[in-house]
Design a protein around this nucleic acid. Structure first.
Lengths: 350, 350
DNA sequence: TTGTAAGCGTTATCAC
DNA sequence: GTGATAACGCTTACAA
């Protein structure tokens, strides 16, 4: 203990700790403590600190899949960039709770989530955060911020991307170019992110005064199998001039779409326009840049940290923040070819 | 407290905690405690248990550059993959010290390194870890493991890649193919990793019975400027048939080399062979795969964690581990063209 | 301005 | 087997 190096324990705590009480300490004493601490390399024990004061300047990061999966592009890397920066700027260190990594106790393990109580507050990552343990944490008033929209446990704070607005913007861009029939290809799951995109897509259609007949939104669990050249040619023949895919974990929807178009022998963007609600998968890095929007992951991470530290500081009630996604012009969209403006007279095949 | 719900505190701890002592507890009591805990939604406070147990199951990760730079390829990502997995498997959480991120206190800030003491032990990342603060930590017996070889403070444990052996292997591969004159292009710094590669390179030359005349190792601080088409043509004219570059943070050496070769109008591998001691930069992903070796970063991370937890567990003295790098055949190496086998008769330009 | 003492919620060591 | 009781290292009234 640094107390050996001069003064008393209280003083040490006052000097090294926040000294929220505004107690005045002699410059000399202060320096003596600092000096001693440096000499001994003394650091207050976070656990003890947290136990006594309920605060230790540690922010937790908990994800229900490995935080660092083998494949970079499937990871939370971009989020962490922002999280780390913002946390550092605010004087917090990060605790990565590994509860859910393969080999670990597993996210389902009872108490896995409870470990986050070691930190002052915690960031939650991932689509599939189990509700039950979460609910208790929230009920206990433990400061939590989820990365991504999440309505589930009421009162949970979150920082999400405004997929809806960005998706609407893409659709309106398409409409402005003259497209009248636009299709959305999405995953067949219930993720909030997918739902938001679909809502934005439909809103965009509505805003542009375009109809959204049956079949405008295509849900598929296996894009590679269902979205093929024949399918695409059929839709194109029906008068569809633009296809929109959502970004998925695997990027399969977009991959299937581009493959189908080239399989159908159609040129992009001269004959068909393609848009992607998110970023393209890494392995398509060489291909022409898709029109769509970028998910501001780093900014979302930073925003989440800001939300969390605000929560910690003034005990405000949990709030939520929507971060704007930047429109990406890309080069896969153009005005539709003349003949396709109105739906062709030939009756659509059932 | 669950003690209200039946029995005593000790019993609760025994039931809910690990019960390492192997103490036997009545089934009935046990159930009563479990039941009560569930009813009250009671969860042992992790901070308290860690305080009492004098261990907090936290492994530190400290780097002197931001742990998550904006560009993925410049990051410690691959290391973290292994670190996270192994830590999780062993029941440890990770503390990411943000001390060195932009916006933070800065790595140079006094006491920045001392903060790691809040963890049970710490992993050190990065080439340029300052020695002085480190030395004290080591002297105090704080469990530390450096990622990468490091002789500096005696008694520091490390987990490194066997660059020397892998580099030698690459050179011998080249020699086996018939190359007699091979050059190494390396950075002009004093990193251990560079030194190891150079040593392995020279060892490989020696093992193959090849000479290493002056100029065999080219040190350059600005590869892009010095390694150009003219330079390469000159070396080639002198009889050099293979060029080896080390992997650097920026990948510049390799990038310069490949650019110089194509600038000189030489075909790879028909006219010149190229090898890379490490992995190619991400932006060259589309190019033919360089012959060389892969740095087993994830495995290094996992090994480091293993070393560290061993240190924690049985208090063994710090040890070091060398992880083998896998040879990567690639497609940038082939036997040298006939005429170049012996150095050409024409005198080398000075 | 500085020191004293009482917890914070567990775990560990003993008697019972 | 189970229950007191003393740490664990710190913060925070409160006393000096």
């Amino acid at each position: 203990m640094a107390r050996l190096a001069g003064v008393s324990q209280t003083t040490v705590s006052l000097v090294l700790g926040g000294n929220k009480q505004g107690i005045v300490i002699q410059e000399a004493t202060r320096d003596r403590v600092l000096e001693a601490a440096r000499t001994l390399g003394y650091v207050p024990d976070p656990a003890a600190r947290r136990l006594a004061a309920a605060r230790n300047n540690l922010l937790g990061v908990f994800s229900f899949t490995a935080t660092f999966p083998t494949e970079v592009e499937h990871s939370y890397y971009r989020f962490l960039v922002g999280i780390e920066q913002e946390a550092a700027a605010r004087g917090y260190d990060l605790v990565l709770f590994t509860g859910s990594s393969s080999g670990g106790a597993g996210a389902g393990a009872p108490g896995a989530l409870d470990r986050v109580r070691l930190a002052d507050g915690c960031l939650l990552l991932g689509r599939h955060v189990p509700s039950e343990p979460l609910r208790r944490l929230v009920a206990d008033g433990f400061p939590l911020v989820h990365l991504g929209r999440r309505d589930e446990p009421e009162g949970l704070a979150w920082a999400g991307a405004d997929y809806a607005a960005a998706s609407a913007e893409v659709v309106e861009h398409l409409a402005g170019l003259g497209h009248r029939r636009v299709l959305l290809v999405r995953e067949d799951d219930d993720a909030q992110a997918s739902a938001d995109r679909q809502r934005g897509f439909l809103d965009g259609l509505a805003a542009a005064g375009l109809p959204a007949p049956e079949g405008t939104v295509v849900r598929t669990a296996r894009p590679a199998a269902e979205i093929d050249a024949a399918w695409l040619r059929a839709r194109h023949a029906e008068g569809v001039t633009a296809f929109v895919a959502e970004e998925t974990d695997t990027g399969d929807a977009w991959r299937a779409l581009t493959a189908a178009v080239s399989g159908a022998g159609l040129r992009v963007p001269e004959e068909v326009s393609l848009a992607l609600l998110g970023s393209p998968p890494a392995d398509l890095a060489g291909a022409p840049e898709p029109t769509g929007f970028d998910i501001p992951r780093a900014e979302m991470g930073a925003t989440a940290v800001r939300l969390l530290t605000d929560l910690l500081a003034d005990g405000h009630r949990p709030s939520q923040a929507l971060v704007t996604c930047a429109f990406r012009p890309g080069s896969t969209v153009a005005p539709p070819p003349r003949r396709a403006s109105p739906p062709p007279p030939r009756p659509p095949s059932p």
